[in-house]
Design a protein around this nucleic acid. Sequence first.
DNA 1: ACAAAGTATACCCAATCGGTACAGTATATA
DNA 2: TATATACTGTACCGATTGGGTATACTTTGT
Lengths: 135, 135
Amino acid sequence: MKLNQATDYAFRAVYYLSGLPKGQLVEAKLIAETEKIPLRFLLKILRSLAAAGIVESYRGVSGGYTLAKEPREITMKDVVEAVEGPIELNRCLVDPGECNKNHTAHCPLHQALFSIRQTLNKELASYNFADLGKN
Amino acid sequence: MKLNQATDYAFRAVYYLSGLPKGQLVEAKLIAETEKIPLRFLLKILRSLAAAGIVESYRGVSGGYTLAKEPREITMKDVVEAVEGPIELNRCLVDPGECNKNHTAHCPLHQALFSIRQTLNKELASYNFADLGKN
DNA sequence: ACAAAGTATACCCAATCGGTACAGTATATA
DNA sequence: TATATACTGTACCGATTGGGTATACTTTGT
């Protein structure tokens, strides 16, 4: 069970942007070089981050990217969800029809998984990009 | 980010075995039918569980499977790891060489991910198959 | 008008997932 | 001791996902 590589790159990109003066634009190319991320792939990831309202993009000659909100307002959970969608943990947490036993409500495994997912989400949400740098 | 289907089946199989009198053998076929798991696939999963010391197998005419230890001694983490290996969360947690920034030790993202993984592991380890049934 | 940025869509190869097939081995019982 | 029954091991298979690239296009500052 792991996060995918795109998510890792997204973490790095957002972390990089968090270290910049508020509102400063940076081209994808520079982020890519600094963070050693394939440029084309990074552009794709940045589009997801933009769609999720984490990053703002500006086109044209001196365009680039900047954070759409304060680093403190962006959590690791936000980034994960922007890139790979919500954490599912298990098919049957998403679609009860997928549960081949089909008695979700009184399935103790389901209950445990539900609670584990919740813990994981909370944990991811507890890290914001302002605090990440410090310590 | 999710657990795979084999792990889900493994949960169900172990849960099923946990509900049986200690030491009672059950054929894979019966587990498969009860839990609606493809038989061949279940057999494969059971081999992983046996290799991990969660389940014991007996061949021959009235063979089958039984838990290798008390339900209380088996956690969801044990089952996850038996089936899909340890939880990695991120490439660079496994192999520092994979970290394209290569300064793992002082990377705040790495530190956060490390801690998140730990929380997840603890959470998974907090559910054992004796308690799952009750409540 | 043109170069420098981002956008959109489509594609590609490799790895993993979910599962099956086949050939083999152990064992209880007739 | 033959045989049916149950597990084992390896190899395979089609579909999906992961990680990334290509191509064509749009926006914008100078």
